[in-house]
Design a protein around this nucleic acid. Structure first.
Length: 833
RNA sequence: GCCGGGAUGGCGGAAUCGGUAGACGCAACAGACUUAAAAUCUGUCGCCCCUAGGGGCGUGCGGGUUCAAGUCCCGCUCCCGGCACCA
């Protein structure tokens, strides 16, 4: 840096130099420990949580966008007097580490910890107030031990179980993939066509909590997130009805439209339905088996992709409709899913679009049984299914009953009651939600602490033997197969019950397990006699505010809610919900308004930005760009504006005023008004995560101060108040420059330990107010009236305004509207007299 | 297909218990400072008409309610997100 020949002998440079002050204050804060939290303090707690990142290796613009504004919001809470816990950690298990191992021959652990170190350093450059003494790293045995402990507890309670399940199998990488890792039917990594395979897999019984998970009563969450979860859980009310095959086998179907039972003209079973093999007649067996085989090859994704054409196969058998003894053909078709309801449906083509399409394709009967007024359906000529309300017809005892899903639900309820009385059906609620498949055929994850003993069967590892440590001396095969399958020492062990030979489970847990309870662990990251510290949990949770990306609206947030309820039922905690308030930030886009990607070359690198502008400018610009929930495109010119703003604040405080203008009482009063208006607005904005408007307000206050700055004014109490307030309000947003200027303007102690300023409503009272005057709804002039002017007085002044008088000429008054503090509207019409 | 969210200057965005549209910033233009440029400061800045005082139009499109509509209602268009044969 070039030496400037300044006249001052001071050690400090008079120009704003973030590269000098930012590292200086980061060190000072660290040394003084101003952000280390006392969890036992009596002050009111506030748990501010942001979603911990995956340690990919570099803090990118998206991380900054997620964390810097969250840091500002957390700092604001702290200045408001709360004892704020704002922790950070790493979601450190997962596929990329394993891929790096296969590709570059570096061990996942080494790769991960190296990344964590680098990212932590980058986080510190941001100037965030994370208390790093609470850091957790999920791939550390002291963390994942408790994943295993929970797993065993859940196994003991029947909440973790093993069953055959269809999975996305990547034949090249020889592993199961999550649905998100399958793109257009191909493996994300290998590009291979994904197959559907039936494999024994561990599951968590999240469906046991379906109903409770639909209750968002206590939560201040975005509507769309609640809605997405509600849709995902997919509750449907209806009935189970038992049909019978001609041979007397019970075939149970689920329907939400029992009022259409009399219109069932065929039945469809899922190809995997257990009765298919038994019911199929020999002359149809070949066709049916071919069809079943075909569908089994299709992954669920392929099966869903073919939404247009419905296919199926008649199995040669018939079922008896219990409501009218009608004999209807039984088909199999892949549009019926084994995983939902009972895997069997009664098909009512007249009143269901899918059944209708199927019926027309295979020329099956269509029997209308719901008839809206003024129409007469004919099954043979109907061109589409009728799904609306109407009167039941051809429905035996129910003819004439109003039925349907929309308004008149009466028919449905009455039919269900009747079915129950007849003993052929019962009321039933089904959910779309499936149990959580937690097995992953991977290395870099928490080992599932289960064993397979020749004598005792499936047994859980003993608590004192936990953690089941992931062996480090493994060899990664280019096939992508988990090295645990070949690690003899890990694989072969003894049964904790009988002591005999046993094999370990080699699957590891889905990483969503780690993130389902991590926030509890921040309270006692190194506790070794239990997963959580009960006293601290009672005192500090639930989390008051949780922030993160909308992409976790369903999975992570639903799993975390489920886990909280499980922990409650295990008597570990006493709350129902983990996160009281949720806010989602949007996505920061490239300058071309597209998602940032290396391929597009529109990536902005925060390290470079910090190098040219300093962290404070980057923080503030990310907050200024637009509404936080909305995200938006980066603008390399836009950040210049913030840079200018901070330079203006700097010179406002540091540079002496050369002008002299005399103290004007009016000017001081206006300054006080501007200060208190800013305090009021900025407080409101930060409370509501409106960082962009908060900064706009601070800019306005700065502009006002710049305009009136003079030797005399800067000596006034109003100026000192304005300057002090400005710095205090900037502190959460731009912590370094605020601290530096706080010190330079003669304050002692850290600004970050100061209280947030309060506004004085009296300072906002004005003697005269400006009002717009409209004539017939168009603004024609402005008037100034005393604060307490009466309606009559206001009208008097309005009518005498020059331009208004002109517009009133030759007009007759129809109506006079006065909106206090806002405007006057004079409604007139041409005077005919 | 179904369910959400959105559309405001050249650009990012303000303003929604209906009450002066365009705060704040970017870009642009003009001026001051400078030999010059950069930086900085001052001013202009929705479109159109007008010599001025002013006036017309304007928040995706078409209607409506109202003294008053970016905001409420009805009908569309386009964009973004979620779910996708869930019986």
């Amino acid at each position: 840096m070039a030496e400037e020949s300044t006249t001052t002998t001071s050690y400090r440079s008079e120009k704003y130099n973030p590269h000098e002050i930012e590292p200086k204050w980061q060190r000072a804060w660290d040394e003084r420990g101003i952000y280390s939290i006392d969890l036992a303090s009596d002050r009111e707690k506030y748990f501010f949580l942001t979603m911990y990142p995956y340690p990919s290796g570099d803090l990118h613009a998206g991380h900054w966008y997620a964390e810097a504004p969250a840091d500002a919001a957390a700092r604001f809470k702290r200045m408001r007097g709360y004892n704020v816990l704002f922790p950070m950690g790493y979601d450190a298990f997962g596929l990329p580490a394993e891929n790096a191992a296969i590709k570059h021959g570096i061990h996942p652990a080494k790769w991960t910890y190296k990344n964590i170190e680098r990212m932590t350093r980058q986080f510190k450059q941001m100037g965030a107030m994370f208390d790093w003494s609470k850091k957790i790293v999920t791939c550390d045995p002291e963390y994942y031990k408790w994943n295993q402990w929970f797993f065993v507890k859940m196994f003991e309670r029947g909440l973790a179980y093993r069953k055959e399940s269809y999975v996305n199998w990547d034949p090249v990488d020889k592993t199961v993939l999550a649905n998100e890792q399958v793109v257009d039917g191909r493996g994300e990594r290998s590009g291979a066509l994904i197959e559907r395979r039936l494999m024994p897999q561990w599951h968590f019984k999240i469906t046991a909590y379906s109903e409770e998970l639909l209750d968002f009563e206590k939560l201040d969450w975005p509507e769309r997130v609640k809605l997405m979860q509600t849709n995902w859980i997919g509750r449907s009310e209806g009935a189970e009805v038992t049909f019978q095959s001609e041979e007397g086998d019970d075939i149970v179907v689920f329907t939400t439209r029992p009022d259409t039972l009399w219109g069932a003209s065929f039945m469809v079973l899922a190809p995997e339905h257990p009765l298919v093999a038994k019911l199929t007649r020999s002359e149809y067996r070949e066709g049916v088996e071919t069809y079943v085989k075909q569908t089994s090859y299709l992954s669920e994704i392929d099966r869903q992709a073919e939404t247009k054409e419905k296919t199926g196969e008649f199995i040669g058998a018939f079922a008896i409709n219990p409501v009218n003894q009608a004999k209807i053909p039984i088909w199999i078709a892949d549009y019926v899913m084994m995983g939902y309801g009972t895997g069997a449906i009664m098909a009512v083509p007249a009143h269901d679009e899918r059944d209708f399409a199927f019926a027309r394709r295979y020329d099956l009967e269509v029997i209308p049984v719901i008839q809206p007024a003024g129409e007469a359906f004919d099954g043979a000529t109907m061109s589409e299914a009728y799904t609306g309300d109407g009167v039941m017809v051809r429905s035996g005892p129910f003819d004439g009953t109003l039925a349907g899903k929309e308004g008149a639900g009466e028919g449905i309820q009455r039919v269900i009651d009747w079915l129950e009385r007849q003993g052929i059906g019962k009321r039933r609620i089904t959910y779309r939600l499936r149990d959580w498949l937690i097995s992953r055929q991977r290395y870099w994850g928490t080992p599932i602490p289960m064993l397979y003993c020749d004598h005792c069967g499936v047994v859980a590892e003993k608590e004192e033997n936990l953690p089941v440590v992931l062996p480090e001396d493994v060899e990664f095969l280019p096939t992508g197969e988990s090295p645990l399958n070949h690690h003899q020492e890990f694989l072969n062990t003894s049964c904790p019950h009988c002591g005999g030979q046993a094999k370990r489970e080699t699957d590891t847990m889905d990483t969503f397990m780690d993130s389902s309870w991590y926030w509890f662990r921040y309270l006692s990251p190194h506790k070794n006699d239990g997963p959580v510290e009960k006293d601290l949990v009672r005192r500090w949770t639930p989390v008051d505010t949780y922030t993160g990306g909308i992409e976790h609206a369903i999975l992570h947030l639903l799993y975390a809610r489920f886990f909280t309820k499980v922990l409650r039922d295990l008597d570990l905690i006493d709350m129902d919900e983990p996160f009281l308030k949720l806010r989602n930030q949007g996505m920061i886009l490239g300058e071309d308004n597209e998602k940032m990607s290396k391929r597009r070359g529109n990536v902005v690198n925060p390290d470079d930005l910090v190098a040219s502008y300093g962290a404070d400018t980057v923080r503030a610009y990310l907050m200024f760009i637009g509404p936080w929930e909305q995200g938006g495109p980066w603008n390399s010119k836009g950040i210049e504006g913030i840079s200018r703003f901070l330079n203006r604040v700097w010179s406002l405080v540091v540079e002496p005023s050369i002008e002299s203008g005399g103290v004007d009482e009016e000017v001081c009063k206006e300054l006080r008004y501007a200060t208190h208006l800013a305090i009021k607005e900025v407080s409101k904005d930060l409370e509501g995560f409106q960082f962009n408007t908060a900064i706009a307000e601070l800019m306005s206050l700065t502009n006002t101060m710049m305009k009136i700055k003079s030797q005399e004014v800067t000596a006034s109490a109003e100026w000192r108040e304005a300057e002090r307030s400005l710095l205090l309000m900037l502190a959460p947003i731009t912590p370094h420059i605020s601290e530096e200027l706080w010190e330079r303007s003669g304050h002692r102690g850290s600004i970050h330990l100061e209280a947030w300023p309060d506004h004085d409503e009296e300072a906002l009272a004005q003697d005269t107010i400006q009002m717009a005057v409209q004539v017939n709804g168009k603004v024609r002039g402005q008037i100034h009236v005393p604060q307490d002017a009466s309606r009559e007085a206001i009208l008097e002044i309005a009518k005498n305004e020059r331009n208004i008088t002109r517009h009133l000429e030759g007009m007759a008054m129809v109506r006079e509207i006065v909106v206090p503090g806002r405007l006057v509207n004079l409604v007139v019409k041409p005077d005919k007299s």
